[in-house]
Amino acid sequence: NLYFQGLKYMVPGARVTRGLDWKWRDQDGSPQGEGTVTGELHNGWIDVTWDAGGSNSYRMGAEGKFDLKLAP
Rank of each mutant, 00 (worst) to 15 (best):
1 N>C: 15
1 N>E: 14
1 N>W: 10
1 N>D: 13
1 N>Y: 10
1 N>H: 14
1 N>V: 11
2 L>N: 15
2 L>C: 15
2 L>E: 15
2 L>Q: 15
2 L>P: 15
3 Y>D: 15
3 Y>M: 13
3 Y>G: 15
3 Y>S: 13
3 Y>V: 13
3 Y>C: 15
4 F>K: 10
4 F>R: 09
4 F>D: 14
4 F>I: 12
4 F>H: 14
4 F>W: 15
5 Q>G: 11
5 Q>W: 13
5 Q>N: 11
5 Q>A: 13
5 Q>C: 15
6 G>E: 15
6 G>V: 15
6 G>A: 14
7 L>T: 08
7 L>C: 14
7 L>W: 11
8 K>A: 12
8 K>R: 10
9 Y>R: 09
9 Y>S: 09
9 Y>F: 13
10 M>K: 06
10 M>H: 04
10 M>T: 04
12 P>V: 13
12 P>Q: 09
12 P>K: 12
12 P>T: 10
12 P>L: 13
12 P>N: 09
13 G>E: 03
13 G>T: 03
13 G>I: 04
13 G>Q: 04
13 G>M: 06
13 G>P: 03
13 G>C: 09
14 A>E: 05
14 A>D: 08
14 A>Q: 09
14 A>M: 09
14 A>K: 08
14 A>L: 07
15 R>Q: 02
15 R>T: 02
15 R>P: 01
15 R>G: 01
15 R>Y: 01
15 R>F: 04
16 V>F: 01
16 V>L: 01
16 V>C: 04
16 V>R: 03
16 V>E: 02
16 V>G: 01
16 V>A: 00
16 V>Q: 00
17 T>K: 10
17 T>P: 02
17 T>R: 13
18 R>I: 08
18 R>E: 01
18 R>C: 07
18 R>K: 06
18 R>Y: 06
18 R>M: 08
18 R>F: 08
19 G>Y: 05
19 G>P: 03
19 G>K: 05
19 G>S: 06
19 G>M: 05
20 L>K: 12
20 L>R: 13
20 L>E: 12
20 L>W: 12
21 D>G: 05
21 D>C: 07
21 D>M: 03
21 D>H: 09
21 D>I: 04
21 D>V: 04
21 D>T: 04
22 W>L: 05
22 W>R: 02
22 W>I: 04
22 W>A: 04
22 W>Y: 06
23 K>F: 06
23 K>L: 07
23 K>Q: 12
23 K>C: 15
24 W>Y: 11
24 W>M: 05
24 W>I: 05
24 W>V: 05
24 W>F: 06
25 R>T: 12
26 D>E: 11
26 D>V: 06
26 D>L: 06
26 D>W: 05
27 Q>T: 06
27 Q>H: 07
27 Q>L: 05
27 Q>S: 06
27 Q>P: 05
27 Q>F: 06
27 Q>I: 05
27 Q>E: 12
27 Q>W: 06
27 Q>G: 07
28 D>I: 04
28 D>E: 06
28 D>K: 04
28 D>Q: 05
29 G>C: 07
29 G>E: 06
29 G>S: 06
30 S>E: 10
30 S>K: 13
30 S>Q: 14
30 S>A: 11
30 S>N: 14
31 P>Y: 08
31 P>T: 09
31 P>M: 08
32 Q>W: 11
32 Q>M: 13
32 Q>G: 14
32 Q>K: 10
33 G>F: 05
33 G>I: 04
33 G>M: 08
33 G>K: 07
34 E>S: 13
34 E>H: 13
34 E>Q: 12
34 E>D: 08
34 E>A: 13
34 E>Y: 14
35 G>E: 02
35 G>K: 00
35 G>W: 02
35 G>H: 01
36 T>H: 03
36 T>A: 04
36 T>P: 01
37 V>S: 01
37 V>C: 07
37 V>M: 04
37 V>H: 04
37 V>E: 01
37 V>R: 02
37 V>A: 02
37 V>K: 00
38 T>D: 06
38 T>I: 13
38 T>C: 12
39 G>I: 04
39 G>C: 10
39 G>H: 08
39 G>F: 05
39 G>L: 03
39 G>Q: 06
39 G>Y: 03
40 E>Q: 13
40 E>A: 14
40 E>K: 12
40 E>S: 12
40 E>M: 12
40 E>R: 11
40 E>P: 13
41 L>D: 03
41 L>C: 09
41 L>E: 06
41 L>S: 07
42 H>F: 11
42 H>W: 09
42 H>M: 11
42 H>N: 12
43 N>W: 09
43 N>A: 10
43 N>S: 10
43 N>F: 10
43 N>L: 10
43 N>G: 11
44 G>A: 02
44 G>Y: 02
44 G>W: 03
44 G>R: 00
44 G>D: 01
45 W>D: 00
45 W>R: 03
45 W>V: 02
45 W>I: 04
45 W>E: 00
46 I>H: 02
46 I>S: 01
46 I>E: 00
46 I>W: 03
46 I>Q: 01
46 I>T: 02
46 I>G: 00
46 I>Y: 02
47 D>T: 15
48 V>C: 02
48 V>T: 00
48 V>L: 00
49 T>S: 10
49 T>A: 09
49 T>E: 12
49 T>F: 08
49 T>Y: 09
49 T>L: 14
50 W>E: 00
50 W>Y: 01
50 W>A: 00
50 W>F: 02
51 D>M: 03
51 D>L: 05
51 D>E: 05
52 A>L: 08
52 A>F: 10
52 A>Y: 13
52 A>V: 08
53 G>Q: 02
54 G>D: 08
54 G>W: 06
54 G>M: 11
54 G>N: 10
54 G>S: 09
54 G>K: 09
54 G>E: 10
55 S>W: 13
55 S>R: 13
55 S>F: 11
55 S>T: 14
55 S>Q: 11
55 S>I: 10
55 S>H: 12
56 N>R: 07
56 N>P: 02
57 S>P: 04
57 S>V: 11
57 S>R: 15
57 S>H: 10
57 S>D: 02
57 S>Y: 10
58 Y>D: 01
58 Y>W: 02
58 Y>L: 01
58 Y>M: 03
59 R>A: 01
59 R>G: 02
59 R>F: 02
59 R>N: 01
59 R>I: 04
59 R>Q: 02
60 M>H: 05
60 M>V: 08
60 M>S: 01
60 M>R: 00
60 M>F: 09
60 M>Q: 01
60 M>T: 01
61 G>N: 02
61 G>H: 04
61 G>W: 03
61 G>R: 02
61 G>V: 02
61 G>P: 01
62 A>Y: 15
62 A>E: 03
62 A>D: 04
62 A>P: 00
62 A>L: 05
62 A>H: 12
63 E>F: 11
63 E>N: 10
64 G>F: 07
64 G>H: 08
64 G>A: 07
64 G>C: 14
64 G>S: 07
65 K>A: 13
65 K>N: 05
66 F>S: 03
66 F>P: 02
66 F>D: 00
66 F>G: 01
67 D>I: 01
67 D>A: 02
67 D>T: 04
67 D>M: 03
67 D>G: 00
67 D>P: 01
68 L>C: 01
68 L>H: 01
68 L>R: 01
68 L>G: 02
68 L>V: 07
69 K>V: 12
69 K>H: 09
69 K>A: 14
69 K>F: 12
70 L>H: 08
70 L>F: 15
70 L>T: 05
70 L>S: 07
71 A>R: 08
71 A>C: 12
71 A>V: 14
71 A>I: 13
71 A>Q: 09
71 A>F: 07
71 A>Y: 08
72 P>N: 15
72 P>R: 13
72 P>F: 13
72 P>I: 12
72 P>G: 14
